[in-house]
């Protein structure tokens, strides 16, 4: 049996649709159920619907053989995985955004960055040799510069309409984000008979 971790929500639906196109009996993902482990009717696959940031964890431990998660999640969680395919859906950008003209504070020489991608932001600014202050938030990140909590935000931008409505602009597009297929490092070898043909089929579809 192959175990698959999918990120709850739209990403899971799109992932299941792709898996179906590749011959995986993934109908069960669309069913309305409270079950936590969804087994395919043919008994060959089991799906776990988890919080997006937990997908890499399930795959790293090998509890799930494969998983589909956004590149943003993968960078933030930084797990030891094979990242084998760019599935090209759920595309967006991970950006630094803020007011076009930044008002620097005299009393803080560090740039204050509000984000839910704390690890990624730390690494990004460290790689540029910049000292920053991270302000960790869990939602409505745009509110931070508007209220003066931070100078800029580091977040996903899809359409940019929330930014625009609040007078903010993208200052820098840093990373291209999309859904990725990740595979446990042991499963790829020990279940190669099933996984390799599946990955090949997926590669051709995207």
């Amino acid at each position: 049996m192959i175990t698959v971790a999918l990120a709850k929500g739209r990403l899971a639906q799109e992932s299941a649709a792709l898996l179906k196109e590749c011959g995986v009996d993934a109908d069960v993902v669309f069913s309305d159920t409270r079950k936590l482990v969804l087994e395919s009717a043919d008994g060959q696959y089991a799906f776990f619907l988890v919080k997006p940031s937990d997908v890499p964890t399930y795959v790293e431990y090998g509890i799930a053989d494969i998983g589909i998660a956004g590149k943003d999640t993968l960078m933030e969680e930084d797990k030891d995985l094979y990242e084998m395919l760019d599935l090209k859906f759920e595309q967006c950008k991970l950006c630094v955004a803020g007011y076009p003209e930044m008002k620097k504070q005299l009393t803080n020489s560090h740039l204050r960055v509000a984000t839910k991608y704390v690890n990624t932001a730390k690494k990004l600014f460290a790689s540029r040799g910049e000292d920053i202050e991270i302000i960790s938030l869990h939602g409505s990140i745009e509110l931070a510069p508007v209220t003066g909590l931070s100078d800029v935000i580091f977040d996903i931008v899809q359409t940019g309409s929330t930014l625009k409505a609040n007078g903010l602009v993208v200052l820098e597009e840093v990373y291209d984000i999309s859904a990725r297929l990740v595979v446990n490092k042991v499963s790829l070898k020990t279940k190669a008979d099933v996984l390799l043909p599946l990955i090949e089929k997926m590669r051709k579809k995207v």
Binding site: Y61, G62, K185, V186, S187, K189
Partner: peptide
């Protein structure tokens, strides 16, 4: 060395 029984070498 890899085995199906654990997800790490």
């Amino acid at each position: 060395g890899l085995t199906r029984s654990i997800g790490s070498p």
